[in-house]
Simulated assay, not measured.
Amino acid sequence: MRTGSHGGVAVVGGAGFLGSALARSLEGPDVHLYTRSRPVLASGSLPAELDTVSTVVWAVSQVNPQVAEERPDLVAEDEHHLLSFLRALDDHGLSPRTVLLSSGGTVYGNHGAPFAETTPTRPASAYGRAKVRLEQVLADHAACPTVVRVANAYGPGQPAGPGQGVLAHWLRAVAAGRPVTVFGDLGTARDYVAVQDVVAALLRLHQHTGALPVVNVGSGRATTLGELLDVVRDVTGTPDLAVRHEPARGFDVPATWLDVGLAREVLGWEPRTSLRSGVAATWEWLAASVAR
C-alpha cells in the first residue's frame, strides 16, 4: 500500500478543465490519466499502475449547477461512480490519498461568507447538495480522503458549460461581438481563482504527508459581477460592451467567497494570480483559439 508523497499521481477526469490543467503540469511515467475513453474502472477492475500511485485526484463529473437541477439521474451516477471506485481500491488493498474536487461556491450555502473549512455545509442548490453527498461518500469509504473545495475556477481551456463559468461565457460573447448576459444583480459576489493557482495547490497537496480532510482553494476575496465586468471591459478593450440583464437563477446565491488560511498554513500555498492577469491570459488563449 502507498500513501503520502512517494508514489505517482492518477488524474480521473484528465480531459476536463481542471483535470487537464493538472495533467499538463505533471510529467513522467508516474502520471496516469483516465478519461471516458480510458476509464479508471472497467468491469470492476483497476489498472495495474494504480499500485504505484500515492495520490488520486477525482476531477470527473457529469453535472454543473444547471444540470444538477434538471438531471438527478446524472447526480446519482456521479455518486455511484465514486463509490464503485473507492470500493475497488479497498478490494485491491490500495490506499492512496484520494482528492475529491468539490465546490467551495455551493456547499456552504447562502450566509456567513467568507467560508472556512469549519463552516457548516448548508447547500441551497441541487449542485451543492450533490457535492456534499460526494464528500460524504469520500469520507466514509476512502482510506486517506481529502476534499478540495474549489472556488469559481477560470482560465485558459475553460469551456462555457450551461449554468457555469461566467468568464468563459462573457469572453466568448465579446469575441463574437455579442452582449454579455448578467443573471441577477451586479452586486452578486463570487470568489474567482485562476486555474494555475488551483493546480499549484493540488501539487502541494500531493507532496503533503499528513491528514487533511478538507481544504479551501480560492482567491480569498469577493469580486462582484460589476467589478468583474469592469475587468473584462478593460482587458478586452471594449469600454462600451453591451450588457443584457436577466433575472437571477434559482441556484444562484448572493455572495460566496472562501477563507484560504488553512491552505496557506498547512500547504504553504497561496493564490498568486491577480484577477486582471488571469482574465488577460484567458482572453489571449481564447483569441488564439478563435484565430486557429
Rank of each mutant, 00 (worst) to 15 (best):
M1K: 15
R2M: 07
R2F: 06
R2A: 08
S5L: 12
H6Q: 15
V9I: 15
V12G: 06
G13R: 10
G16Q: 04
F17C: 08
L18C: 13
A21K: 03
A23W: 11
A23C: 12
E27C: 14
G28S: 08
H32K: 07
T35D: 08
R38C: 06
A42R: 15
G44F: 02
S45F: 14
V53S: 09
V56W: 03
A59D: 02
S61L: 00
P65G: 00
Q66D: 12
A68W: 01
D73S: 01
D73P: 10
V75K: 05
E77P: 08
E77T: 13
E79K: 13
L82P: 01
L83A: 14
S84A: 11
F85G: 06
A88D: 12
A88W: 03
A88R: 00
L89W: 10
D90E: 14
H92C: 14
S95N: 15
T98Q: 06
V99F: 03
V99P: 00
S102G: 01
S103Q: 11
S103R: 09
T106W: 14
T106P: 09
Y108M: 02
Y108N: 04
N110P: 15
N110L: 15
F115Y: 05
F115I: 11
T118R: 12
T118L: 12
T118Q: 13
T118K: 08
T118F: 06
T119V: 06
T121G: 07
T121L: 12
R122Q: 15
A124G: 11
A126C: 03
Y127S: 03
G128I: 05
A130R: 03
K131P: 01
V132A: 02
V132S: 00
E135Y: 04
L138G: 04
A139C: 12
A139H: 13
D140P: 00
A142I: 02
V147H: 10
A151M: 08
N152S: 12
N152A: 12
G155H: 02
P156T: 08
P162W: 10
G163T: 08
G163S: 07
Q164T: 15
V166L: 06
W170M: 08
A175L: 04
R178F: 07
V180D: 01
G184C: 11
G187N: 09
G187C: 02
G187T: 03
T188E: 14
A194I: 12
V195Y: 05
V195A: 08
A200N: 12
A200R: 13
L205T: 05
L205M: 00
L205I: 06
H206M: 00
Q207G: 12
H208Y: 07
V215T: 04
V215D: 05
V217P: 09
V217F: 04
G220F: 00
R221P: 08
R221H: 15
E227T: 09
E227P: 06
L229W: 03
D230M: 01
D230Y: 01
V232I: 06
V232K: 07
R233W: 02
D234C: 14
P247V: 03
A248I: 04
R249F: 10
G250L: 13
F251R: 03
A255M: 04
T256R: 14
W257F: 10
V260P: 09
G261I: 02
G261E: 08
R264Y: 05
G268R: 05
W269E: 06
P271K: 09
P271A: 10
S274E: 11
S274H: 13
G278P: 07
V279E: 00
V279T: 09
V279Y: 02
A280Y: 13
W285A: 11
W285E: 11
L286P: 02
A287N: 15
V290I: 06
